[in-house]
Design a protein around this nucleic acid. Structure first.
Lengths: 208, 208, 208, 208
DNA sequence: TTCTAATCGAGACGGTACGTCCCGTCTTGCC
DNA sequence: GGCAAGACGGGACGTACCGTCTCGATTAGAA
């Protein structure tokens, strides 16, 4: 969809004889790339440094991805997409919210993500494929999880039928995401509990 | 504070010769820089392109700022800092909230900011001076405005004394900021009104 | 001597498995190599292009020769060595000279040789093995043939006993070789006849 | 004609302000290039090594020449063209020949030329501009000098009117050039004297 | 008004990284 | 074991920018 080689493809057996991208090399590159990314940031990171750190030729990188941007893009997308939130369904709105927020918190806590997230978004505004990738792989499933909880609560009568689902989703996701990615503040269990309460109240008032 | 030469300084030392940075040049550079920034993004933008577009020698840029980063940093900081939110104080929480949110909306609507914001945040995580600049020039005054409104409402008894001001500020700012910067969704007056209601409800529940 | 595997060796050890370099492959490589050499020249020619053109894996090349240089070296050496000049001995100096020059002309007329010769010499000045190979396989036998004719003529009294054999050989070989390899001019039968006369006269005067 | 910047051009003053290729840099590059060329040969020499040795950025090279080939090509052409042979005219064929041969010998003795000459010729067969450059700058003037001597001798009656000037020129130049460039043999004064005698005799017989 | 020194446009400079191509080696699965 | 295919580490290619420096020409405050 975005990048090029995924691990499955690396096993694909070509017609005759053949040469296949080696998983060990891919792994070494991936690891090195994340390390460089975390140390230097997207803009300052260099493919040559990644290759050097991975003990690999530059060509090995370019055999896998057509450019620095494509590489970083795909690596991050994979990393984030990998950890999809499961949708809690305890039958109790408060508990569901708490659980979902806790899941988000743990995913956002990934220190790499914090450092990289902004760079990704920045790139996305100049790269439609990346924007689409982020939407499909990251944003959409999380918003879907949030919507599911809200809809279930509406169906149970815990939330008003007139709730604006879109706004409700914003309310649910934004404060925590903003706090962790922009403000870089911590969010302990107390914070989460209070936030859950506040969001719950907000949702009940968010009718159009 | 961050960069180097501000327009005031340009008048600073008349000394002997005609040795003052010329305002017209500074303006041409500024304009060109924003144009390039919007077209290419921070990472892809080049000082040479800015100079070319401004019809100016590269040295003219480096006479004003010590580096690409410093230049962009200062330009943006000026642009954003220029539009400080005024703190509404109508004596009515709902009206104050609405007004503040409307101010934020108009500031965030700047299309440049939307494209640049993320890149700035990305850089900030590897550049403490930039981070500090953003905090002082952008984040802090806006959070202060939000806090002021909340504190006034508490003082009036409209909000509970136990309100967590920090969380309250997050609730106030995050949903709109997130929607406009990350989701890039629109936010019409209806959205804003519903949001105001929801936040108001949330604030009343956000006690620790 | 220079390279590695010669066709004789290819029959040498049938051993166990199908573990003998296959002649067809060797031939395909050889043909492709000459073609690439003629098209691109030594410096611009690539082993990968040769392999591709021969429909062969790169390893097939490196199983036969240790390096690009060794391969080209041996191929050319074989091609040129293959066509040793026979030493004419008609008992008449003029006829012997004419015949030898005609032989040289036909060998130098090989269009490949013309294109490759210079590149080979260029390499030779930085590669003693190649220089030695060219000397032994190409230069020496031709100079020997020339010397034999001259010595026979001296013995018959057709040339003065004081003839400087080394210089005589230069006189015999150089003008034709120079004309065909450097100047790239043609040399028809008339030219050859006049040249023979001139060289004959020169030889009679070339005593020290 | 071949390359790009000559020293004269380096002084040319462009319209406004301006930046001009600096002679010192050009000289450093030239010197380094010859050194590398002599050490490694054309094929093995690298632009990066030249830049490093000259204490210069790679871009400084590519600002002057569009490619490695173009650089070497022009440098050599300049070096060889610089040393044109003067045409001796003593009124005596033997003396004229001796003198011209001595001039050639001293020019061919340039050890760099010996190492580079073959590489140049090799390149020339794949680069018409280079071939033309060599012809115009190197070959033609030398052949012209030879022809002038021969023609004068014909006019004086020292050589037969029917002399084939083309062949005569070959006879004059080839043996020495071949000996020094291909055979890499030495040629002392005795050799030169004997060669002169032989060529003189040959010339008298070289009529068609 | 004249002098004069810093700014100006242009672009060369030493560097670093880009993405490409080729070298000679190694790996994979087929024959 | 040879074979076709092609990935591997390495290194050079030629390009694009970075931030600095050099060049005359311009310009505006001080005399």
């Amino acid at each position: 969809m975005l990048g090029s080689m995924t691990e499955q493809q690396q096993k694909g057996r070509p017609a005759t004889g053949g040469a296949v991208l080696r998983r060990r090399v891919t792994e070494a590159i991936t690891e090195a790339a994340f390390a460089e990314l975390a140390e230097a940031g997207y803009a300052r990171m260099s493919m040559e440094a990644v290759a050097r750190r991975a003990g690999v030729g530059k060509a090995a990188l370019y055999r896998r991805w057509p450019s620095k941007q494509a590489m970083i893009t795909e690596l991050i997308r994979n990393k984030v997409t990998g950890t999809l939130p499961h949708t809690p369904a305890t039958g109790d709105l408060h508990t569901d919210l708490r659980e979902l927020l806790a899941t988000f918190r743990s995913q956002l806590a990934n220190p790499l993500l914090a450092r990289i997230g902004a760079a990704l978004l920045a790139e996305a505004s100049h790269d439609d494929a990346l924007a689409e990738g982020i939407h499909t792989g990251v944003t959409a499933p999380r918003r879907a999880a949030a919507r599911a909880i809200l809809q279930a609560a509406i169906d149970r009568g815990e939330l008003p039928a007139g709730l604006d689902l879109d706004l409700g989703t914003d309310l649910l996701i934004a404060p925590l995401a903003f706090r962790m990615m922009v403000t870089q503040d911590s969010s302990d269990d107390d914070y989460l509990e209070t936030l859950t309460n506040a969001i719950e109240a907000a949702l009940k008032a968010a009718t159009r």
